[in-house]
Amino acid sequence: MRFALDSSHQDFAASIDALLTKSDMPSVIRSWNDGDTEPGKKLWQRLAETGVNGLVISEEHDGLGADAVDLVVALEQLGRHAVPGPVVETIAVAPTLLASVAPERLSALAEGSLATVAAPPRTPFALDANAVDLVLLAQDGTVSLGVPGEAKASVDLSRKLYEVSAGESLGSADFSAAFDMGALATAAQLQGLGQTLLEVTTEYAKQRKQFGKVIGQFQAMKHHLAEVAVSLEMARPLLHGAALSVRDQSADASRDISAAKVACGDAAYKAARVGLQVHGAIGYTMEHDLSLWLTKVRALLTAWGTPSEHRARVVEALVAS
């Protein structure tokens, strides 16, 4: 199995990174946190113009018809920049569901519409149901249009969660494939979030002084940062391997996705903990940009399957093999 990304993947990642780098992401995120979604929606429209929204949508429905490797390449970049909104739901989960029950709705997603999905009990709430064009409810083998209800709080202020009740039925569908795509895309987001936290923390350690010495020169500090770097590098092959399993329709795809979700989540959480320790008291403040990445990591750890659920899936698959 070949894990290395080719030049087309690298160029695609670079184009997304360039777009988001010049978009003043902290400002966009804070506006979304405060209920002003317009800056975020304008950003989403620019992303749609690059093809990100239609990655896994067929060309027949105005998408790119790309594979899972392209998906994780894009989602890692969206994670790096902590893009607000229903990232996983719009790009990965909703297209997978609609392809089997309402393909006529796919073109709107490819063109920039936002979608969210609730799927009790695994994913009981719909993310940002107040700010999207399409709400879906997947329950008991049926996909329905969702009707948003009561809002729930999240540790990440950019993630507004809503209870959803069933509206018009769109048809029957097996949710397992959509769940796997959600878990894979979330793993990619976590990988990107962890990478940014490592970079920001390393840069801070090069500048912050204590006792007349830059803290990055302390051996203990170097060890902490090195452990984060190793964790992220060890998680990436599992992420890319899971994407290849999905692309190749491997019988082990679900197992590989769960392994990637656990590894990327653990690495991102370690990056978050070390980032907070290195930054000290300022890292606890909402005013510091670090908080925007820290809280998203914490929220995504349990999104589209908890760590314990995914560990159990890996164990079950290994025992059965």
Results as ranks from 00 to 15, higher is better:
Ala226Ser: 11
Gly265Asp: 14
Leu197His: 11
Ala271Pro: 03
Gln210Ser: 15
Glu199Cys: 06
Ala271Asp: 01
Leu238Ala: 13
His240Asp: 13
Gln249Tyr: 13
Ala263Phe: 01
Gly216Ser: 06
Ala260Tyr: 06
Ser231Phe: 01
Ile282Pro: 10
Gly216Arg: 00
Glu199Ile: 04
Tyr269Ala: 00
His224Ile: 00
Ala253Gly: 03
Gly241Thr: 09
Lys261Arg: 12
Arg273Glu: 10
Gly241Lys: 12
Ser258Thr: 06
Gly241Cys: 09
Leu193Ala: 10
Ser258Asn: 08
Ala268Pro: 08
Ala242His: 02
Ser250Thr: 14
Lys261Phe: 06
Lys270Ala: 10
Asp248Arg: 04
Val278Leu: 07
Ala235Val: 04
Ala272Lys: 13
Ala271Ile: 03
Glu233Phe: 00
Ser254Ile: 00
Leu198Gln: 07
His279Phe: 11
Asp266Met: 07
Thr202Phe: 05
Phe218Ala: 08
Ser258Ile: 00
Gln210Ala: 15
Ser245Val: 09
Lys222Pro: 07
Phe211Ser: 10
Thr201Ala: 04
Gln207Gly: 09
Asp248Asn: 07
Ala260Asp: 11
Arg208Trp: 03
Val230Phe: 09
Ala267Cys: 06
Val214Trp: 00
Tyr204Ala: 14
Arg273Thr: 13
Met234Cys: 03
Ile215Thr: 10
Asp252Ala: 13
Gly275Arg: 09
Gln195Ser: 15
Ser245Tyr: 10
Arg247Gln: 07
Ala267Pro: 15
Ala243Gly: 11
Ala226Cys: 02
Ile282Cys: 12
Lys206Thr: 08
Leu225Asn: 10
Ala281His: 14
His223Thr: 14
Thr202Arg: 12
Ile257Gln: 11
Ala263Lys: 15
Pro237Gln: 07
Val214Glu: 12
Gln207Ala: 15
Ala267Gly: 15
Gln195Leu: 13
Lys222Asp: 05
Phe211Glu: 15
Ala272Val: 04
Ser258Asp: 14
Lys209Leu: 08
Tyr204Asn: 09
Gln249Asn: 13
Leu198Trp: 09
Glu203Gly: 13
Ala260Trp: 05
Met221Arg: 06
Arg273Gln: 15
Asp248Gln: 06
Lys206Gln: 04
